[in-house]
Design a protein around this nucleic acid. Sequence first.
RNA 1: GUGGAUGUAGCUCAGUCCGGUUAGAGCACCUGGCUGUGGCCCAGGGGGUCGGGGGUUCAAAUCCCCUCAUCCACCCCA
Length: 434
Amino acid sequence: MSIQRLRGTADILPDEAPLWRRIESAARREARLYGCREIRTPVFERTELFSRSVGETTDIVSREMYTFPDRGGRSVTLRPEGTAPVVRAYLENALHRTAREARLYYLGPIFRYEKPQAGRQRQHHQFGVEAFGDGGPAIDAEVIELLMRFYEELGMRDLSLLVNTVGCAACRPAFNGRLAAFLASRRPDICEDCRRRSDGNPLRVFDCKSAGCAAVIAEAPRAIESVCPACRVHFDGLRALLDEAGIAHTVRPELVRGIDYYTRTAFEVLAGGLGAQNAVGGGGRYDDLVESLGGPPTPAVGFGTGIERIVMVMAAQGIAAPPPDGAVVSVIAWEPEGIAAGRRALRSLRGAGIPAEMDHRGGSLRSQLRRAHRAAAAYALLVGAAECARGAARLKDMRTGEEREVPLEGIGAAMGRLAPAENRTGVPGGRRPS
RNA sequence: GUGGAUGUAGCUCAGUCCGGUUAGAGCACCUGGCUGUGGCCCAGGGGGUCGGGGGUUCAAAUCCCCUCAUCCACCCCA
């Protein structure tokens, strides 16, 4: 084997692409239903966009970014998350001036230099939504509802939604201080990782899985009990709205996200079948980010969800993938007299919007029919010398085996009338007739 | 970055512990049986740097060392 794909990357092969398209079109449909418009930002940005927004001390910025100097000496970074570029584009193109409230969605690759494992790659893909300009809990609930509906549309089951509040600029510093002080007092009882965390981002200790730390953490002050009255009202409001929408959720006070810009609402959706990386999606509110990137004070809330992890959950839950792409009609000519007529039929079919193929290498009728069968074509068009001489061919239904003679003239239009449902790329009745 | 497991045909894997004739199976692929008819069956065929490099040995897929990759877990996240 010569050149291989880069570590942590994956090829999405023709057999898998239909499922990806289904997921992507569900994403676009849901986003549209909720009033979101698509935005496409570059896959690379100036490095400082991410260091300033995501946070210098986060794992993402401190050790996971694909950062390199370009030929002009600028430091550029492959986007390690979707929100900061959208905020940048929102400001740079003055979208906040044309509409007070903007709802945007994106779909595309994300890059993080991590060690791959189940559900974790160096390039993965996310569907994300960002809603700007509304600081109230109703929009948080709506964004979460969009996400849960999207999963539901794909047939995903047994998901758990975890919600938390991480406070705001007014109350978080004080809480962080109290937590840090508490952790300092218990420093001998906590693990090395947590000591490190208590210096950088003390909230992270709530994530620790070590048994020793769990006992300490149980006594630690909780953000949810320490936030300011405004944050409390927002969080209670969100929970009531989720209840109203019939969206089951669990309050998880230890839920913390690894990106610094979140304020107030933080949420995550967990699923089984993913291995240790059990989050399919997550997000939250980021009321200070737009302003910190140079815009006017603008509250915002959004989520990102990983397409690869959705694919994994769907596979684990046995959710059927769409049929593979393939030709609907296989044109077969096995005698010299039929070859040119076969090619004309091929053009006629394609002109009528019917996916059609013909094996130009030829071969016996038997072998070409076998190929058509394996390619799961719905029909075979047999252009034999005898029929060809009277301007006709035999149309064979591959599922039933029935054959009838059809005129070659206008074959595309005739097939279009015969099987209008097959005018698209899908093949009716599933694939692989047996 | 740390730890564990695994690398043999396009795919899934046997063979490795106990070194020994041309390295196997199933599936997939190609051809024929059926000279103008797919699926099932039968027969035949193509395909391999045994991840790479080095070492030990008369002899290495097999033993030793190094290296790379993949998977899984920690960490972190989608």
